[in-house]
Design a protein around this nucleic acid. Structure first.
Lengths: 319, 319
DNA sequence: CTGTTAGCGCTTTCAC
DNA sequence: GTGAAAGCGCTAACAG
């Protein structure tokens, strides 16, 4: 069913139908004829064809590392909210934490083309920066600081530092830290450095043997904790770079050292974890806010055509 | 940057460039010239334009009720796997558990148009069935049984029944059930009916005062459990329609009746919950499998052009 | 092998 | 107000 057929059935020109659909000048009687035909046929104009003609797809591509994550879902929620308010659609792709897929999807989106791209960033390699710079579609990165394009990120360093200071002051036992790859500047390097510096600030030190790195899964947190507990059986606190890792650590403790009370801390304020455990010490970031702000930033760039690089750092709250 | 400009720069026709891009006949020297120009300009052909011409978008629309859910993410994982294997893209939309948005997104996808739609179903109203029947794009429904189009669902009734039989036989205390809206035939009606029938099968009965209905959130599970515990303080087992609800229930119990040991059961085999609690009694469904099978079914329909309505019921495993 | 040409379905001047 | 016509960027015959 095309606009031509509708035009023929309604005995008007295709231009009239197009105007009807887009709120242009059409006489009342023709309007009525067109309306009737459309109703009857269930005609829907092709978004593709319109896009080709108008150059505005009203589409933004969103790239996320994984989907089953409270932080990510909050971010996408925030994005989705703004997009639907402003009548845009979201094309969501998942990289399964594979940074090379991020590049692939950026390529794909660029050639789609979408009006803009939001990258919920993990590891920003040289190739990434290159691509970010060269991309002809506006991009906003969420979750990582970067100079190439506009970005919105959280104060990972500050949060980790304050958390470590608190822990260092309040508790006396041995402290371990399970981080993630330092290639991830935010969740990896910044949190780890912040944590270490926070301990130092209160006169303590993170022992080398008490540092582990996990991937972003519960299973990995479980494994690292098992390893840690086996080698350093007198650990009293295990701080984790994410709540997901913390969940795996809690499991490991329950299995390996159920008699000792080992404290676990996380990052992300996962509601599920809070409900089931009664709430561990964690850091709340405004994930939804970063989604909202990121989407607004992007859409403003898209609609104005101007690409003024902006950088927003969001605060945190210790829980 | 269009194919024409590339053609001009490489001093060939646009058809040659098109052939080059799609693996048609091009002489070696022209190939080289084209390659060089493309490399230089960073040209990417427009997916939109190609789609308009070829009528194959290689795109499937996926509609899910929410994103932060282990079951949903498993399903989308399965879908994504098959799609990328077969070089399709996924357009993902989230309804926030609002069935009217499902209709809206189906409309949107239909007019996109995408090659096919996968609906991870919740409540299938009359309007839904109407739309499913009339939709000119192949559709597969996952998670609900329906006669209008192909569907893949789980044996919710059977699982709930067996679960209830086990509980009824093994445990002697008072049993409560927190379900979800019966409008959701699978997670609502089927699980509830199965549970009730299972108890009956072993000579027990679900008391009316011990039945509650929550929405699909932890918070709602928490509230219902609070209400339940306040009114019926001698409950020994609370069975829940989903693991997410179970998490809220666990929180409520910890707060209201920490001294009593109340058993909680769920549905969905949530890994997070398993890690943190050590594993409650729950039901494992092959969510990823349903995603894989659903996507395969859809793509086969898309590629063959035949819409043979198929119905697949997947089993379960009690944990 | 290669270029010319005719559209895909839609919007948008531009005359009438 | 309205229709004819010219494309958007691409592919697929069809002649060479």
């Amino acid at each position: 069913m095309t606009i031509k057929e509708i035009a023929k059935l309604a005995q008007v020109s295709s231009a009239a139908v197009s105007r009807y659909m887009n709120g242009g000048y059409v006489s009342e009687e023709k309007k009525e004829r067109i309306r009737a035909v459309i109703e009857e046929t269930g005609y829907r104009p092709s978004v593709q064809a319109r896009t080709l003609r108008t150059k505005r797809a009203c589409l933004v591509g969103v790239i996320v590392p994984k989907i089953n994550s409270e932080s990510i879902s909050r971010i996408t929620e925030g994005i989705g909210q703004v997009l639907s308010e402003r009548a845009y659609q979201m094309l969501l792709t998942i990289t399964d934490n594979d940074p090379s897929k991020e590049l692939e999807y950026m390529d794909l989106f660029e050639s789609y083309p979408v009006d803009g791209i939001i990258l919920v960033g993990t590891v920003l390699s040289g190739a990434h920066k290159e691509k970010l710079k060269k991309c002809r579609v506006p991009i906003v990165v969420i979750g990582q600081q970067t100079n190439e394009v506009s970005c919105i990120y959280h104060d990972d360093y500050g949060a980790a530092k304050e958390l470590a200071e608190q822990i260092g002051k309040e508790m006396s036992g041995r402290i371990a830290y399970i981080g993630v790859t330092r290639a991830d500047k935010a969740a990896g390097a910044a949190r780890e450095d912040g944590f270490r510096d926070g301990l130092r600030a209160v006169g303590r030190e993170l022992e080398e043997g008490c540092l582990r790195r996990a991937s972003f899964t519960m299973e990995s947190g479980y494994e690292q904790a098992c390893d840690l507990l086996r080698l350093e059986s007198d650990i009293d606190i295990i701080s984790c770079a994410t709540d997901t890792i913390a969940a795996g650590v809690i499991e490991a403790i329950a299995q390996l050292s159920p008699q000792r009370s080992i404290q676990v801390t996380g990052f992300g304020d996962n509601q599920f974890l809070k409900a089931v455990t009664g709430g561990i010490r964690t850091v709340h970031f405004g994930y939804q806010t970063s989604g909202v702000k990121g989407a607004r930033l992007l859409l403003d760039m898209v609609e104005s055509g101007k690409t003024l690089t902006t950088e927003i750092k969001l605060g945190y709250e210790l829980l």
